[in-house]
Design a protein around this nucleic acid. Structure first.
Length: 892
RNA sequence: AGGCCCGUAGCUCAGUUGGUUAGAGCGCUACGUUGACAUCGUAGAGGUCAGCGGUUCGAGUCCGCUCGGGCCUACCA
């Protein structure tokens, strides 16, 4: 099939009774990208709109969270593109250091080998092959979901350009003194065999034990008692701490305890962090294996005795316990303490223990030589950017969390003892001096040695270091590129709140530091996609949904619409398949409404670019007014990231106002029973607008249908994606018609209810009367009588007082009368009216009470008081009509 | 330990700055193939807005407390 075969000039296949997304979605996705509609142009003079995709990890396929973010990013991009912005959405993927390395290691294990066995170069090569495979998958999935991103600009965090940006950022920060290397306590994951950052540690509440251990005091018979949850670390104790003001232990100042099992002398030190109320108020100090103790150790210049190694086993310095796993060592230490009489008591104790997010095992706090980034200054700028409004968080409730985290930030451990990632650009010479430089040649010049004498640091950088540069590294930074000038700062970032600190905060900090500007103006934080019962999706629970399966079953449009309408601020998203089936029904409704219109319009009817309501009848004026209001509201809601409300409005406009009412109102005219001017033109024009309004949410269906509308070429010759987004049309607004039509709709609904109450069979016609007090409304009712007759299946609709024995009611100022041949006011109707009278009595009493209250009259705004008066009058009148109806019924 | 969010119909959720009668979808009930759609149409039932107290002429909405659920941050060993 040639490209032309898919262009709009070709007739499309006849429309089936049911829409079949599979028949056009993949075709349109391919066509869009072949035709290159979504390329951003740095030289385009129009205002730009840019979104950077949160790069999915190349570890697997896209999950529901990606689908949600893809839907919303595409919605925004398509919306802005149609509004005439120079829109660009840049796709890409993340190398995901630890995650990918683990996957590849697992694959190797299945082959009976390991990364150590095959060596670093071969391992990294395997990672690249892995990346290619999953990257291609992700690209296919984005296409399938209808993503209108510019694939010509697709990036990967480890491609050449981005790697250069990483090196440049590292070198600059190092020269500014913000990156340094040092021995500090870090979170060590023995399973992953690497350090991880504070953020990669998950606190879990675990049921453990609190061991109370007696330590003898040197040169006396006194024993003090300390408590610990980790007895194995006592082998590395080098002091006992007490609070400086603790009178109970004043006599211990300057003295020392003796460490049981080991015999080491532990001086008593005074430190403010000791809580006097906890336990005995004395704390064993293990500077090598506890973050708090590490700090105490630094303050008091205590020696560090490392008894647990990087493999999670006890070191040679642990004496008899050397070689034991840390948890086995705990058991054996406790046994020895008990045997030797040092164990005072053991209590059950629930406490929080840090676990490695990826590895799953408890992290081991260890002192090691790592690279750190001092982010305090950058954090202050990121805080200020949110405070002064340059960077908006949506929903705003995240601002406090942002402030709390950035206000208490600590140095970021950025080195990882992994093989997959960006190698740290630091080179050691033979004397062990370290030279940070962009490449080995630059390092050699700095060191004044030959490149061969240098060896590069074996560690790689935390994945989030490169992700932190994403919004501008993807546009060519550190070079001053046309893309960077045209599209940076980007406009919106759409991402899950779970990576606010990992990623969003780092981008804000790096962006402000390196480009002196925010990397994006708005961050829209989404909830997490859960299953229908609100349970987090996980493989072990078996409740994981695959977006591609859903796209196949429901259509990508229904999936996107469901995700968008469920994106309420500050809430997680319960993914309900029944609900999605409902929105698939909505797609079908749109399909069939269009099918109906195309089958019924006249030969010369066309989509209009301008239409004058003055030449139209009331139903046409009404739907155009509703359309204008809808366009205005949708635009406003998109603008404030209320995708849920925008989609709700679109749903109710299309299904409720257009299908349920306007199309029904148009039928008598379309079938020639009661011709009205330009009904076909109006119907096509409204459909065109509705499809364009829906396009950002349902790109496929709207594209497919729009091409069938005669006359739509005037808006764009090729694609709805580049047609203008509908706006409010002041000339279509018509409050008087809206009010009258609203009353008419209410009257019809009420008359149908009366029919149902009287149990009139659907095929049986009734006689209807309508009456209004004012002449204008009466004239309007007379004019619309045939329509009312069609909608309520009436043999006659006259403007008159209710006939003798008619069922009556009053809605929106219209007095209704309905007579069904051979039907009297039945028990059902009587019962309903009695109930209605009871309810009215309550409402009338409430309104009268309010209006009798002088405080209310004095303090409430006049409009509210007037509203209450009008309301009361209407309630009373309605009560009178219903009473009259009941009496007439009783007589008849 | 601190912070944030949530509690509205059987279920999942909306409800803008306090203002007349609290909404939607699904589910449920009754009826229905008149010329697009049974992935449909028409009508309907269903809520003391978690509880208590306060502010106010007026509170689902604002304030305080209690109970219940979730999330985030945190060096009490």
């Amino acid at each position: 099939m040639s490209k032309d075969a898919m262009t709009t000039a070709e007739p499309r296949p006849p429309m089936d009774k049911r829409f079949d997304p599979e028949s056009y979605e993949p075709r349109l996705a391919a066509w869009w990208h072949e035709r290159d509609f979504f390329r951003g142009d740095a030289d385009d003079p129009r205002e730009s709109f840019c979104i950077m995709i949160p790069p999915p990890n190349v570890t697997g396929k896209l999950h529901m969270g990606h689908a949600l973010q893809t839907a919303l990013q595409d919605l925004l991009t398509r919306w802005k593109r149609m509004q005439g912005y120079n829109a660009l959405w840049v796709p890409g993927t993340d190398h995901a250091g630890i995650a990918t390395q683990l996957m590849v290691e697992r694959a190797l294990a299945e082959e009976g080998t390991s990364r150590r066995e095959i060596g670093r170069a071969a391992f990294v090569e395997r990672c690249w092959r892995w990346k290619q495979e999953y990257h291609d998958n992700i690209r296919r999935q984005l296409l399938r979901l209808g993503a209108s991103c510019d694939f010509s600009r697709e990036r990967f965090t480890m491609d050449e350009g981005l790697s250069r940006a990483v090196t440049e950022a590292f070198v600059r920060l190092h020269r500014e003194g913000l990156i340094y290397r040092g021995e500090y306590m870090v979170n060590w994951s023995p399973q992953l065999d690497t350090a991880v950052s504070d953020l990669e540690v998950e606190m879990k509440t675990v049921a453990g034990k609190l061991y109370h251990v007696a330590y003898p005091v040197e040169g006396s018979d006194e024993r003090i008692v300390v408590a610990t949850t980790r007895p194995e670390t006592m082998l590395g104790d080098t002091a006992v701490a007490k609070h400086p003001d603790d009178e109970r232990y004043r006599h211990l100042t300057g003295r020392a305890a003796i460490l049981p099992l080991v015999g080491r002398r532990l001086p008593f030190v005074d430190d403010e962090v000791v809580e006097r109320e906890f336990g005995t108020g004395l704390v064993k100090v293990t500077p090598s294996h506890d973050p708090a103790d590490f700090e105490i150790g630094k303050r008091h210049d205590l020696p560090r005795v490392e008894v647990i190694g990087r493999d999670g086993r006890m070191t040679a310095r642990s004496g008899d316990f050397a070689g034991l796993d840390r948890f086995e060592a705990r058991r054996q230490v406790v046994e020895r303490l008990r045997a030797e009489g040092w164990l005072v008591k053991v209590e059950d104790y629930t406490h929080n223990v840090g676990h490695s997010q990826r590895g799953g095992e408890p992290v081991e706090p260890l002192v090691s030589l790592q690279w750190f980034c001092d982010v305090e200054g950058m954090a202050r700028r990121a805080l200020a950017a949110v405070e002064d409004g340059r960077l908006a968080l949506v929903p705003e409730s995240w601002v406090k969390t942002w402030e709390h985290w950035l206000g208490n930030i600590k140095p970021w451990c950025i080195s990882r003892q992994l093989w997959w990632g960006h190698r740290i650009p630091a080179f050691s010479d033979r004397e062990g001096r370290v030279h940070v430089a962009r490449d080995i040649e630059e390092a050699a010049r700095q060191a004044g040695v030959a490149p061969e004498e240098l060896t590069q640091d074996g560690d790689v950088l935390d994945t989030w270091f490169s992700s932190g540069l994403w919004p501008f590294s993807t546009l060519g930074w550190p070079d001053d590129t046309a893309d960077l000038r045209a599209f940076h700062p980007t406009d919106v970032l759409v991402t899950g709140h779970d990576i606010l600190f990992f990623w969003v905060a780092r981008m804000a900090m790096f962006g402000l530091h390196f480009t002196d500007d925010v990397p994006f103006r708005t961050v829209h934080l989404t909830g997490l996609v859960r299953d229908a019962d609100g349970v987090k999706m996980s493989k072990t629970k078996g409740n994981v949904l695959d977006p591609l399966d859903l796209a196949a079953e429901y259509g990508a449009d229904a999936l996107r619409f469901t995700l968008s309408i469920l994106d309420a601020p500050g809430r997680d998203i319960p993914m309900d398949l029944e609900r999605m089936a409902g929105y698939r029904g909505f797609c079908n409704k749109i399909w069939n409404a269009t099918r109906f219109a195309l089958a019924r319009i006249g030969e010369d009817d066309r989509v209009q670019t301008a239409i004058d309501p003055a030449e139209l009848a009331a139903p046409e004026r009404w739907i155009l007014a509703r359309l204008s209001a809808t366009a205005a509201e949708v635009d406003a809601r998109f603008g404030e990231y209320r995708f849920d409300e925008a989609c709700n409005r679109l749903y109710h406009f299309f299904w409720g106002e257009l299908c349920d009412w306007y199309i029904e109102l148009a039928k008598p005219a379309l079938f020639g029973d009661a011709p009205r001017p330009r009904v076909g033109d109006v119907l096509l024009t409204v459909l065109d607008h509705a499809l364009r309004l829906l396009h950002p949410v349902m790109p496929f269906l709207t594209e497919e249908l729009w091409h069938r509308l005669p006359g739509r070429e005037a808006l764009h010759p090729e694609t709805i994606a580049l047609a203008p987004y509908p706006e409010r049309v002041p000339a279509w607004e018509d409050a008087a018609t809206e009010e009258r039509m609203a009353a008419l709709i209410e009257a019809v609904t009420r008359l149908r209810a009366l029919r149902a109450d009287l149990e009139v069979p659907p095929a049986e016609a009734v006689a209807v009367t309508l009456r209004a007090d004012d002449e204008a409304t009466s004239a309007f009712l007379a004019e619309q009588a045939p329509l009312v007759a069609a909608l309520v299946r009436a043999s006659s609709v006259t403007v008159a007082a209710p006939a003798e024995g008619a069922a009556r009611d009053l809605v929106a100022g219209i007095e209704l009368g309905l007579v069904a041949p051979r039907r009297e006011l039945g028990a059902v109707e009587r019962e309903r009216l009695e109930a209605e009278l009871g309810k009215l009595a309550g409402e009338i009493a409430a309104a009268e009470g309010r209006l009798a209250n002088e405080q209310f009259l004095a303090k409430a705004p006049p409009a509210v008081v007037a509203g209450n008066r009008a309301r009361l009058a209407e309630l009373v009148e309605r009560r009178e009509r219903i009473r009259a109806g009941l009496e007439a019924g009783a007589e008849g």
